[in-house]
Amino acid sequence: MDKLISSVAVRALLAFLLLVALGPILWTVLSAFKDLRDIVTPVPKILFTPTLDNFATILRNPTIRDGLLNSAVVVSAAVLVGAVLGIPAAHTLARYARKWGDDVQFFVLSLRFMPPVAIALPFIVLYLDLGIYDTLFGLVLVYLITTVSTIIWLAVPAFERVPREIEEAAAMEGCGPAEIFWRFSLPVAAPSLFGALVFTFVLVWNELLLALTLAAQKATLPVVAASITSLGKEVPWGVINAATVVLVLPPLVFIGLLMGLLNSMVRSGPK
């Protein structure tokens, strides 16, 4: 009997934990389909007539549409350039740089931890002087710090896991280092590399401070979302919830990949 009670208690606790993890998000999704009338009720409503008005408002609003577009352009450009520069560098660091490779990796990872304010302040002055303040190019440039460093950081272990025999056999066949990288190491490491790119994408997609500081008209989606609250006197909660849902969707698509990345990192981590 005791066992039964404790197993019921454990189940209840786990159900509660799942509710704490997902409840707030589900509630937001639910509220995104609500009329403002159904949101502003003394007792929270579970049953209501769903409406698409909030999403329509968002997609019709030019500021939000532009934000979505700016975010898509800036984030994909920064991740793409980051990948082109970072992935070959990571391969070299993993394979050819024994002695000073550690120092380079230290430097690269330390950038990932720089306080964004310390980047934002000098760059705003520099951008104003250079005339690239409030341009998509400027945002991409500053995001390269994040993307290149994160991609190198995550791609080095991916290349270290490529079996050495493959590369040695290719070298015996007379392949040069570039060919070995392109034809042998890259395809083997590709799945983990994809995970790394996704992780980097999420990081930059979520970024607020730099986008807020270095652009005004060319605002990205987080900046636009952050400014919705001040639309008029009445807080448009339905619209805010719908905007949150739009903001949340792209990162969530990648959750399975993040899980795989985590699994492989834990497995290769403590030896």
Partner: peptide, 23 residues
């Protein structure tokens, strides 16, 4: 459970902030 627990950290901070302001 792992999947459910990974969801919150993937949210943009701005989105997480709004979700909880609402709550």
């Amino acid at each position: 459970i792992c999947f459910a627990f990974l969801v919150p950290v993937l949210l943009p901070r701005v989105a997480a902030a709004f979700i909880w302001r609402f709550l």
